[in-house]
Each structure stands twice: as C-alpha cells, then as structure tokens.
Design a protein around this nucleic acid. Structure first.
Length: 760
RNA sequence: GGGCGCAUAGCUCAGCGGUUAGAGCAUUCGCCUUACACGCGAAAGGUCCUCUGUUCGAAUCAGAGUGCGCCCACCA
C-alpha cells in the first residue's frame, strides 16, 4: 500500500523520457515543415516567420560534457519556444571532426597502448581516427537525445561529409583566386611534440623563471634568455635614439663566437626598448617572430633567416659541435662554454628573470618559434567587413561586453595560418608546380588548387608536381558551418550541379530551400571561449562567401564551474557528467538547473544540490497535475465550458491575471535572451502562486459538500486552464515532464505539447 | 603593457532610478492537513564593498579608492 502510494507520487522519468523523445521524433515534430502542406512553404513562412539555430557541432572525440548540456538547454529553449509560437523552426544538428583536438585525443590513446601516430601511414591513421570519431558521433547523438534536443536529425551534418568538403574547397579556391591566400615563410608556433604549427589562438603563455644571460658580441654586450639561438643571429639591433651605440650603427663589428670569429651588423630599429638589458638585441629572424619582423624592415641591410633549430627542437649543423642537442641542454652547455671563453658575463646573469613562455595549449610543451612554409589568409580586408556588419547591427551581440572584445580583437588581427601538419582533417587541395615554365604559373607562384589528382600543371604543363599533405585548421572549415550546412541540405538540384561544376565558384547562384529559408540564421549560441576561434571566423567567411552575415544574434554562454568556482576538469575530479545526472535526476532537472539562477554571459555555477532542487520542482509539477486531473468531473470538457457561465472568485481572477502576466513576461524574457528570468518567473508562478495559493484555495470548494455545481465547474475550469498553460510555459525548459502530463490530459487539442500554441 | 567585468542574505546569484531589496540552496521553529514530507505553514538572516557627487528620490547613474576575476599582447 505504502509502496504503491510512493510510486504514484513520483514522476517516473526513467521510464518515460526515452518514450517521450520517440513520440516527438516519430511524429516528425522536429522538422521545420511539420504540419505544413506541400511546397507552399513560403506562404506559411509569412504567417509565423522563421527561426533557425545551427547547433555548434560537438567534437566527435569524446562523450558530451556539462558544457554541451548548456548549449542544448539554451538552444532547445529558444527552439521550442519559437516552434510553439508558430514559426517555421529549424535546429540543425551536427558533429565536428575537430582536427587537431581529435588527433591529440587519439594520440593519447595510442600512447597508452605504447604506440605513436608516427608509426602509421597517413591512410591507416586517418582510417583509425575516422572509425574513432564515427563511434563517438553515435554516442553523442544518443546523448543529445537524452537531453531532449529537439533538433532535426534528418538534416544532421558532419564536418567531413563530402558535400561539406566540397563547399570548403570552393571557399578556398575563391579565396585563392581573389589573392587572399598566400604561402610564405613566417615564424610560426611549432609544437615539437605534436609536430604541427599552431595558430596564435592555440598557444597559451606560462610564467617561467629563466636565467637572463649577458653575452658579449665584441664591444657590445646584450641580454638574452636564449643563447642557443645565437648561431642564427643575423644582426644586432638598437634603438636609433640610443647614444651608447651610435658609433656602431650601420657598421659590421668583429665578434668572437664559440665557432670562431665572425662579423655582425648593428642596425637601428625603433621597437627596441632602451631600458631593457643593455638596450641591444640580437636578431634571430628564423626563431623569433619579432626578430623576423625586424628583418622584414631591414631586408636590404642584413642577411635573411638562418635556421638553427629543427622541427624536433634540436640544434642543426649551424651549431657546430652543439648539433643534435635539444634546446634546453644546448642552452646550458652553450652558456657554460661561453662563460669559459669570456663571451658571457656570468656575474651579470639574472637568475630570477621572470617572463612568459609560449606553450602548446594541449600538451604544455614549450612552443618553438620556427620559420616555416605555411598557408595564410590575408585577413584584414575580410575583418573590415565583419566589423562593418556588426557596426551596422546586422549581427547583434546580446552582450555589449563581447562586442567590445570582438572589435578589439579584429582591429589587431594578424594573418591566419590555416595549414596544419596533421593527418586528421580536410586535406588542403593544393599542388605545387616545380617548373613554373610560364608567366601565368609564376604569377601563381606555382600553386595549383585542385581536389583531384593532377599530372600536369594546368598553366605551364609542367609535370613535376608536389602534392600538399597539410590539412586545414579545423576552424577554417567550421567557420563556414552555417552556410555550408544549409546549402548542403539540397537533395536534388544543387548536389548535382555542385558535383558537375567541380570548382565553379558560384554555387551560391543556386539556392536551395533551406539556404534560402534560413540564412542568415536567427541566433548563434555558443560558449564565449570560442568567440575568436569560431564565431568571428563564421562572420568573416559567411560574409565573404554569401555576402550576408551568417546569423543575426550572438548569444555567448559562460563556462560551467563547480560550487567553488573552479573550472571543471577530469584531473580535478570535479566534473559533473551530464548523462550521469540525467540518469539520477532526469533531464528536466538538469536543464532547469542550468538556467536557474544563472545569468546571461556569466559563468554557470553548478552543483548536484542545484539539480536535486530542480528535481523537486519536477515532482511538484507531477503531483499538482495528479491532483488536478484526479479532481475533474468525469464529463469535464474545457472546450464546452463557456467562461461567462462561470462564477469566478476574487482568487480565481487573481491567478488568471498572474498567469497572463507570467505568460507575457516569460515570452519577453525568452525573446530577449533572459532565459533565467523566464525560468524563475514561471517556477515561482507555478509553485508559489498556483500550487501554494490557488490549489489550496480551490480544495475548499472541491471538497465541500455544500459547493454548487457551478462553483465546482468554475474551480475545475480555472485549475485546468492554469495547469495547461503552465505546461506550455514550462515546456521549453522542462520538455519531458510537461509532455508527460500533457499526454494524460482528458482533452488534448494537439497530439503533443511540443506542437501546441504558446498561450495568448 | 592594453582592455574589460564583478563586489547585494551563510552559499550561488537576480534586481539596475521610484512602495517595506528578492529567489534557490542552507539554517531555525511548528506540522505525516485525503496532490506532493522531494511537502505545507512560519521565522531568522542585508551599513546592497568604501568614500564623494548627480537627483525630490540611488543597490541602481557619475567619479575616486579597495578587493577579486577575466581577456588580449607578449620586449630580447
């Protein structure tokens, strides 16, 4: 008996959630054209408008973490709300191959097995990672469903889908034809462990204490932390205003080195800080980005870069007897030897010199700045357009804060290195002609864009061709995600045309209904940590390829932290596994906890307590619903009751008014991206106004034997009406419990709550 | 070095010019009242960081200070 009662009073989320998701999915409710007949979609559009979110594709290299649950929750709230508002609504899901990130994860797994990526051929490695991501992708899809994501699975895309790659190639070719791609020697961030270049964004800085040595270059003494790079020095630079060195300016001075006597030129450059060290700097253009720029300014005066460190972080033959030593060993050895020979002043060495050292953001290995051939995008002209679009309000940040950061970053943007020396990714469709037999070919610097194997240079007919093996920076392809995903939805005409046109760049002349209908999308919702990596690039590439911004609003959510404000990480052991939580408390509780008490753009503080608290709210909804549905007369039918025949009490009128206010406020708050306010408002309305006040008040009338039929009818009508509308208001936040209750209503106007109309 | 944000109840945060400053969690007290004890009813808890100004009126706007945090750039 007690057991029986217990089971009744708890909402059996475990049993119901999957079934409810199936009900939605099988009903086709996630599809934008659900309930709309035939091809007349355009007229339908006019009525309700449209709403579209392209899901930030999770990396297919690990199960979902709590951060993913945040985006699912926020985006699903918007999607469900606008769907109920009658809009043609699309939430397009996807998964990201996540080039470097995935390769790093996979490499770690190999390492655990005592293997290395370098023992596999490109093809084998690619296949292995492919299988790995496909497996992960499946897992992720299941997890997104568990969280209640009402996205249209029939439109799901993967960043390595052939049609996506096709579009990425066309973008690349257009950039190339417009002269915005160049291949050149630049000092790039090289990760010695991962054997690839990294963009500036993929580099973090660590404060370290290293000795600052004072070395003697003939009569000039200068400070450096990196004496091991001295074999690559091509000049000494001083500030033009520095009187101490005036007599040496423009002259070659005789110096002694560990490898014998040499000559080196002294030049003047304004960037040199007279205050630091001795005011004189050795210039090593092959291994320092700033020095490289000095060389660029003084090309005519001094020799070009001399490489002394190889890709494995070891000194090469330029370093004489030090060849083969690793940077760290070499530094110590060289400093010692120089001191012995009087080339270094040991008494001046600063052993407490604090400075920042660049490290790989994934493995923490010290970045070796290396000069190397890489592909770059000339980003300035593109960045300008992105800034203009934001200034004009074509794209709106929901937070001014991020808008400022956006402008600051774009103003100072540097060319984007898009080539990565890794296997996992989209191969750069580039060939290099070694012969360059005619002008046309020379003009292109021997670069040929082709995604197919070619045997001949199309310009000079030369047959000595080298194929590029690098892959694109993942963000280059994901930066095209909004238009690429929508364009690639075309089932018939476009696909054919794209395939037959090979590299015709005007695929955008062919419109597909999805691209036409949903581009620009309504909102880009993602974490602020990828503002530069992703959001900015989408704006840039979106405008470049389509002439229009990719989305109208940008909503950036914060990081999920634990209750001590710590970042969640596996090593700290403070991670909350969203799927584990769903198992324990149900998806609704997790979703509600993620919006409740958190405000836009700020970090989200999450603890299990908070989720448990929301589960209690789920229980409350369940029990209130049980009470209401259990107290309706058998023949109760709300559609047959006329409001003018009711005898509404003061309290009845009060709750109906509150309902109206809450409906209005919740709608406004969701539309203005204040999700927490909408959630809290509705929560408070339902629990503390409706349940605590109205239901208690109504009991008197329901239980009393002296109540008239009219009074009974009135109370039933009121509580039923408020319940049904509350379910609608709560549905975007807590889709499962609300749908579960809706399915039990005696008179459902629609087959499911998800396709109900938002209350008026 | 450049830029930005935050400071409100024990904790996490709302509120951002107008009654007595709110919520969730935690705390205390009373209740197994026929929807729910994952509940109900009540209570306690706040110089809204400090100072100065603007205003009829400031937690809310401005300036200065203090503390905390973040982002960008990295100079040998």
């Amino acid at each position: 008996m007690i057991l029986n009662k217990y089971m009744q009073t708890r909402y059996p989320f475990k049993e119901l959630e999957d079934k409810i998701y199936q009900l939605w999915e099988k009903g086709g409710y996630f599809k934008p054209d659900f309930g709309k007949k035939g091809p007349s979609r355009k007229t339908d559009l006019k009525k309700g408008g449209r709403f579209c979110i392209i899901m930030p594709p999770p990396n297919a290299n690990a199960p979902l973490h709590i951060g993913h649950a945040v985006f699912v929750t926020l985006e699903d709230i918007m999607i469900r709300y606008h769907r109920m508002k009658g809009k043609t609504t699309l939430w397009l899901p996807g998964a990201d191959h996540a080039g470097f990130e995935t390769q790093v994860v996979f490499e770690k797994q190999l390492e655990k097995k005592g293997q290395s990526r370098f023992q596999f051929s490109r093809e084998v490695l690619y296949k292995m990672i492919w299988d790995f991501t496909q497996k992960n992708k499946k897992v992720m899809e299941g997890q997104l469903k568990k969280l209640g994501a009402s996205c249209d699975w029939s439109r799901e895309k993967f960043t390595l889908d052939p049609d996506i790659i096709k579009i990425v190639y066309q973008t690349f070719e257009k950039l190339f034809d417009d002269g915005l791609i160049y291949r050149g020697k630049r000092v790039i961030n090289w990760c010695v462990k991962h054997q690839t270049s990294l963009s500036d964004l993929e580099v973090k800085y660590e404060e370290r204490i290293d000795p600052l040595f004072y070395i003697k270059y003939g009569p000039i003494e200068l400070a450096t932390v990196r004496p091991e790079t001295k074999f690559g020095d091509t000049a000494i630079a001083v500030n033009p205003k520095d009187k101490r060195y005036k007599k040496y300016l423009g002259k070659e001075i005789e110096i002694k080195t560990l490898l014998g006597p040499a000559k080196i030129k002294v030049i003047a450059d304004e960037t040199i800080d007279m205050e630091f060290g001795t005011g004189a700097v050795k210039i090593t253009p092959a291994h320092d980005a700033a020095d490289f720029e000095v060389w660029q300014r003084h090309k005519s005066e001094i020799p070009g870069p001399k490489i002394v460190i190889d890709k494995f972080g070891r000194l090469n033959k330029r370093a004489g007897q030090y060849k083969g030593l690793k940077v760290k060993e070499a530094r110590q050895k060289i400093a010692e030897d120089m001191a012995k020979k009087g080339l270094l002043n040991p008494s001046k060495t600063d052993h407490n010199y604090k400075h920042n050292v660049a490290v790989c953001y994934k493995c923490g290995t010290t970045i070796e700045p290396l000069i190397s051939d890489q592909l770059f995008i000339k980003i300035k002209p593109l960045a300008e357009k992105a800034m203009t679009a934001v200034k004009k309000g074509e794209v709106k940040f929901t937070s001014k804060h991020f808008e400022k950061i956006f402008f600051h970053w774009l103003k100072n943007i540097k060319d984007w290195n898009i080539s990565r020396q890794i296997v996992w990714g989209i191969k750069i469709p580039l060939w290099y002609c070694q012969e360059k037999k005619n002008k046309k070919c020379r003009d292109k610097n021997g670069l040929i864009v082709s995604d197919k194997k070619i045997k001949q240079c199309p310009y000079c007919r030369g047959e000595k061709l080298i194929e590029e093996t690098d892959t694109f920076d993942t963000w280059f392809s994901s930066g095209q995600w909004p238009f690429a995903t929508l364009l690639s939805q075309s089932r018939s005409s476009l696909k054919l045309k794209v395939q037959s046109s090979k590299f015709r760049k005007n695929i955008f002349n062919y419109t597909t209904s999805d691209f036409e209908t949903f581009y620009p999308t309504s909102v880009m919702e993602t974490g602020w940590d990828i503002l530069f990596f992703w959001v900015v690039r989408m704006i840039i590439l979106g405008i470049y390829m389509t002439g229009r911004v990719p989305f109208k609003h940008i909503y950036l959510h914060g990081l999920v932290r634990d209750k001590d404000r710590q970042k969640m990480s596996k090593s700290k052991g403070n991670v909350i596994d969203p799927l584990g939580v769903v198992e324990l408390y149900g998806a609704d509780a997790l979703r509600m906890a993620l919006v409740f008490g958190t405000s836009a753009q700020k970090d989200i503080i999450m603890s299990e307590d908070k989720i448990a608290a929301q589960q209690r709210f789920v229980t409350k909804i369940w029990n209130a619903s049980r009470f209401i549905l259990g107290n309706l007369d058998k023949n109760f039918n709300p559609s047959k009751i006329r409001q003018q025949n009711l005898r509404l009490t003061k309290n009845d009128k009060w709750i109906l008014k509150e309902l109206k206010n809450t409906t209005k406020k919740a709608a406004k708050d969701i539309e203005e991206f204040h999700f927490h306010r909408a959630a809290e408002e509705t929560y408070h309305f339902f629990w503390h106004k409706f349940c605590d006040k109205t239901l208690e008040d109504v009991k008197k009338r329901l239980y009393s034997k002296t109540s008239t039929l009219k009074d009974r009818q009135t109370s039933q009508w009121v509580i039923y009406k408020v319940l049904v509308d509350s379910l609608k208001l709560l549905h975007p936040f807590m889709p499962f419990i609300t749908e579960a209750v809706y399915q039990k209503l005696p008179h459902k106007p629609k087959k499911a709550l998800i396709i109900e109309d938002w209350p008026k």
